Amino acid sequence: MTLSLRVATWNINSVRLRAPLLAGVVEALDPDVLCLQETKTPDEHFPHEAAEALGYAHRVIRGMKGYNGVAVLSRHPLSVLPDGRDWCGKGDCRHLGVAVDRPGGPVEIHNFYVPAGGDVPDPAANPKFAHKLDFLAEVTAWTAARGPARRAVLVGDLNIAPLEHDVWSHKQMRDVVSHTPVEVEAIARWREAGDWHDALRHFVPEEEKLYTWWSYRAKDWRAADRGRRLDHVWVSRDLAPGLARHAILKDARDWAQTSDHVPVLVEVAV
């Protein structure tokens, strides 16, 4: 019997504030592994009780006060991969790599939160944008050194919408951070370095609109629908034939006190 693994990713934008919303994610998507970004809390204040109550007995967290932070919640035993990095020497908790135990062998899961990059797409004028490009260059070199991914899934808020229909207007967004040519080229190099397969576009053709984020600034985000696909799931080429389904929990954007990102899930045979 072929076993599947359901992996979800969500930029929760403060896990302590939005811990009650996790129940809705679990009810709708039923993930085996739930990867969170922008948890914004030091490890000692992570809401373990909420995760435990939802059936996630295995947890790895890497957090800090007020900013960044990533967490992996799992129904299956997992271990931290030994090659964790302090990206750009900033110690800012933007990556967790774990191995999830499955009968067919461990599955690597990498949970990333890429720097947003500020508002000005000029590394000379904007240190935040320079940091984003440095981060992408460093993670690409690391990925290339590891070689093609095998039995692996990479998820997270990568803060780049690379394709024309990953944004509401390609023409108007080309000079906006998250869709500039330099970022699009950088994320393509990263994905190619690990020979990763874009799992969401596996199901949704590139000519169709696909979003996972809608700004808080929109009075009626559904009517405006000015979204971007900032949240991604990539799978290694050996797992790609086993991709079974995906889900984007768009209704989560309507929840009270919710994140501006919505949860994303991919199910894959492992």
Rank of each mutant, 00 (worst) to 15 (best):
V153C: 07
N159H: 05
R191M: 01
E183V: 08
A125G: 08
W142M: 15
V177H: 07
H179Q: 00
S169V: 02
P162Y: 00
R150Y: 04
D157E: 01
D198H: 01
H170Y: 05
E138N: 15
V167I: 09
N159R: 07
S178N: 15
D198K: 04
V155W: 03
G194A: 08
P205K: 13
H197T: 13
P127L: 09
K132I: 06
W142T: 15
R146M: 10
P162V: 02
V177L: 10
L163V: 00
L158T: 02
T180N: 09
T143D: 11
L163F: 00
V177R: 10
S178Q: 14
W190K: 00
R150P: 05
R174Y: 00
K128E: 07
A161C: 03
V176Y: 01
W190Q: 00
R150W: 06
L200V: 12
F129V: 03
P148W: 00
S178G: 06
H131S: 13
T140S: 15
S169Q: 02
A152L: 10
A188F: 01
P205G: 13
V204N: 12
G194V: 04
H202L: 07
F135R: 15
G156Y: 03
P127H: 08
G147D: 13
F203C: 11
L200K: 13
D134Q: 14
V204D: 08
A149C: 08
A141I: 07
W190D: 00
V182C: 14
S178I: 13
W168E: 01
D195G: 10
V176L: 05
A145F: 10
A186L: 09
A149H: 09
L154R: 03
V184N: 11
R151P: 02
A137P: 12
R174M: 07
E185R: 10
V182M: 14
K132A: 10
R191P: 01
A186P: 13
A186K: 11
L136G: 14
N126H: 08
L200N: 11
V139H: 12
A124L: 07
R174T: 05
A145Y: 11
A186T: 10
W190I: 01
D198R: 03
D195H: 11
A130L: 11
L163G: 00
E183Y: 06
G194K: 07
L200E: 12
R146E: 09
N126Y: 06
I160S: 05
G156V: 06
V204I: 15
V167Q: 06
Q172N: 09
G194H: 08
A124Q: 07
A152K: 08
M173A: 01
R151T: 05
D134G: 08
K128G: 03
N159I: 06
W196V: 01
V167A: 04
E138Q: 15
H170F: 03
V176S: 06
E138T: 14
E183F: 04
V153N: 07
P205A: 15
T143K: 11
R150Q: 14
W142P: 08
D166H: 02
I187H: 04
G194Q: 07
R201E: 03
D195S: 13
V153Y: 02
V176G: 00
H202S: 13
H197A: 12
F203A: 15
A125P: 02
P205D: 14
V155Q: 05
A137I: 11
F203V: 09
H202C: 07
K128D: 08
P205W: 10
A145D: 15
A124R: 05
G156C: 08
V177E: 11
V182T: 15
T143R: 15
G147M: 14
R146D: 04
P148F: 02
